[in-house]
Design a protein around this nucleic acid. Sequence first.
RNA 1: GCCGAAGUGGCGGAACUGGUAGACGCGCCGGACUCAAAAUCCGGUGGCCGCAAGGCCGUGUGGGUUCGACUCCCACCUUCGGCACCA
Length: 809
Amino acid sequence: MEEYDPKRIEEKWQQVWEEARAFEVANPDDPAAADRSRKYYVLEMLPYPSGTLHMGHVLVYTLGDVVAHFRRRNGWLVLHPIGYDAFGLPAENAAIREGGHPRAITERNIAHIRNEMKRMGWSFDWSREISTHEPEYYRWTQWLFLRLYEAGLAYRKHAPVKWCPKDQVVLANEQVHDGRCEYCGSEVEARSLEQWFFRTTAFAEELLQDMAELEWQERILAIQRNWIGRSEGAEVVFRCEELGEDIPVFTTRPDTLFGATFFVLAPEHPLVERIAERAPGGAQIRDYVRHAAAKRGEERARDEKTGVFTGFHAVNPVNGERLPIYVADYVLVEYGTGAIMAVPAHDERDYEFAQAFGLPVRPVVAPQEGEAPLPFTALTDTERLVSSGRFSGMSAREGGRAIVEWLAEQGKGRFATSFRIRDWLVSRQRYWGCPIPIVHCPSCGEVPVPDEELPVLLPEVEDYQPRGVSPLATAEEWVRAPCPRCGAEARREVDTMDTFVDSSWYFLRYCDPRNDRAPWERSVVDFWCPVDQYIGGVDHATMHLIYARFFMKALNNLGLVGFREPFKRLFSNGWVQLGGRKMSKSRGNVIGPDELVETYGADPVRLYILFIGPADQDMEWTDEGIEGMVRFVRRLWRIVHEVAERAPQGEPEDGPLLRKAHRTIAKVTDDIGRRQSFNTAIAAIMELVNELARDPAGPASRRAAETAVSLIQPYAPHLAEELWERLGHERLWAQPWPEADPAFLQEETFELVVQVNGKVRDRLRVPVDLPQEELVALAKASPKVQAHLDGREVKRAFVVPGRLVNLVV
RNA sequence: GCCGAAGUGGCGGAACUGGUAGACGCGCCGGACUCAAAAUCCGGUGGCCGCAAGGCCGUGUGGGUUCGACUCCCACCUUCGGCACCA
């Protein structure tokens, strides 16, 4: 018997699979009529082609591969594609750093990553490979942009945005974490710029509601729920007589309206400038606004309350009181209406401000009993309204509703819902992205590029250096274009799209990747989609996973797809750590698949990454661990060879080993298929191998070995294929998944646990088919039990068939 | 502060529907093979007491429900993640 040589067998089988096109899948001839009940779309988040793969990729794609193999062998038509999220800042920054074109760098990286993926033996359908930077792909990204534009879901506006001073680019809200740029970690600045947005807020309510039908881990749903941030309350109109304007405010606490003692506008509120024009203290107001604008969001939150009185007033519609209007930066322009009624008695921030400015505090909500310290913010079922006119005495909740209804009758208020989520800022002032297919005409304004002129190709430029204006602007000839509407000389939009636009629809393109007449054929996409099993990291919970959901809702409204949710089931994997910390280049604790495959082989790496622990939790990579896995693989190799040589052929005989084999089939099938417990499936196979090792030449050994090899195939496909061949068979990847025979699932005897008053006192080996009374009798007869009974009478006996007897005295 | 996830041996973890706590693996200890080492194989391995048989304790803490709780309920502590002057 030769040694286990991973390199040799892995190369051998990878070649066999490629020649056999083993994992390619054709679309049905008539997708609209095809049976969808046995199709399975398993997808892992596509990689960003930076230099090399990391262990996170190894985890994600191995997870997906196990699922893909498992489904295929269970008779499903499996779509398991791969591609590259190729546009984006890192490649562009690398081009600036090292010289060269971002395209060249990206394509070099793709070539490397493709090679690494092939060495891992993942069973992708390579015939459907795509990359988002290719004109054949981004042509359709542009086409989709135009459809959203026509539907009013893409628009341009002047708005306060987050700006990264280092990367010289605007960022989506989702890309700012703790006030820092997600790429470089610089603190972001606030700027007011004309930018392109997608109207994600149009679907805020639906994005929230439809989570009910998603089979996603609660932790991801919770993150999205927080991000969408729905609040119920009321919009109430305050009249400013000096301005002759109605100013609406949003509040979640209409029950506290009688306690309002002042009124606040955000510094960026559109009425502030008008007030400043007329107010005697206009200069001070402008001063304050300028001062607030210079502060970062974090400072605004951290600092003491500041503000300035305008001299103007707003009338409280519930009691006609004139409230002084302040401008203060603790009120945010982007949430609610950018204006608030301030109720210091029942809001901590208003209270702080009132203290600082010596404003009155008037409690209108009282606890059930006694007095509460101010500010009193509780709202349960027990608080009552006081000093609230005819609403006094009502419960605060009821009273709040009644007040809104009363205001609604007079047209001064209504029930309202507010969301935290903002429209998605999609334009970027950088080179390496999908050009926005719009032309700006001096007379026609924004004009979409006609479909037949797509793609708008990314022009060649000399210099990618970020300067705050897109490098595309320097491609003068490209920028100058005739207006598609009037023919006059016009200028192309020079910003590119956020790469998350590319990745919001890539899984649709996989279904119909070579279509050059449309982004996809709807019947084909409706056949494969939604994705049955999606796999990827938690870090995309508020970005990619929200954007893609938004896209499906928009595309469904446009009649382009027949569903509204892209990913039915989502598995969010944990982080792979080394030395107790997340692997990262800056920490220098990165190990990649290249060296590991070189040292140990792809199969042991695949096995170990899933064996470390539950794949949805963070895990710690250790060298000792992978070496243990190599030990197991070599052991399996040796034992199977011994079985192939010495074990008898023919029908296996019933016995403990055969029963163990069947129980293992049941366990592994359930672990992979239902429980998604990939680590315990491996442990179960190890148990079977341990038992087989005791008797490699027995009457059921051949069947046990075949079972172990067959079950481990999704994890270690090369090893399994090789051993399968040595057991005298072929094409394991296409063999049906083994089935557990219920007749063999039980042992003939089991260990009966005998408890006295819930404490284990004895264990007896008994036949499985004994009636309950006999089990109790046997239990009572045990000398150890007798000693513990101590002559006392057994009052009750609980029997769990096949497990235990508990005698209560 | 609000929302979510999680706390089990020396370590990673298992125990799925309330029924033997610690599967499987790492590490460690002992033995076999070897001139020796590595590799491999065999055995042991939660803590405490005991020569042993055996006993007691043990799943973050404190209570509760139950014949029986890692699992269910109540209160709390810790860690991690998300949101956060969001009205």
